[in-house]
Computed example of a mutant assay.
Amino acid sequence: MRKDIHPAYGPVVFRDRSTGTTFATRSTLGGRGGDVPVVDVEISAASHPFWTGGTRVVDTAGRVEKFRRRYGTR
């Protein structure tokens, strides 16, 4: 590999914002030196519905009512 053309690769901690789960790995986001940076992510395997087998509650009441007002029985 050529020197000084690749990004720094070092330890980093990813934290799932919805569950608080953390996992450590290496990434170019971390860089080298000092403290290990923490990167917040919205969704990880700890909270994704495909991996957890759960579903997310999505507020669809407003959308359903809007649809009924537009296309409901006249």
Rank of each mutant, 00 (worst) to 15 (best):
M1C: 07
R2I: 09
R2V: 08
R2P: 13
D4S: 10
D4F: 07
I5A: 08
I5Y: 08
A8W: 03
G10I: 00
G10A: 01
G10P: 00
F14L: 08
F14D: 00
R15Y: 01
R17H: 04
R17I: 12
S18E: 13
T19E: 00
T21E: 14
T25G: 03
T25Y: 06
T25R: 11
R26V: 11
S27N: 04
S27Y: 03
T28Y: 10
G30Y: 00
R32M: 10
R32K: 13
G34P: 15
G34Y: 06
D35N: 06
D35V: 05
P37T: 06
P37M: 03
V38G: 02
V38M: 03
V38Y: 02
V39E: 14
D40R: 08
V41G: 03
V41K: 04
V41S: 04
E42L: 12
E42Y: 08
I43T: 15
I43V: 15
I43M: 13
A45G: 07
A45R: 13
P49T: 04
W51I: 03
T52G: 01
G53K: 00
G53L: 01
G53S: 02
G54C: 04
G54T: 08
G54A: 08
R56D: 14
R56W: 15
V57P: 04
D59V: 05
T60R: 13
T60K: 09
A61I: 12
G62M: 02
R63Y: 09
V64S: 07
V64N: 06
E65W: 04
F67K: 06
R68A: 09
R68Y: 06
R68S: 04
R69Q: 14
R69C: 04
R69G: 06
R70S: 11
R70V: 06
Y71A: 07
G72C: 02
T73L: 09
T73E: 15
R74T: 12
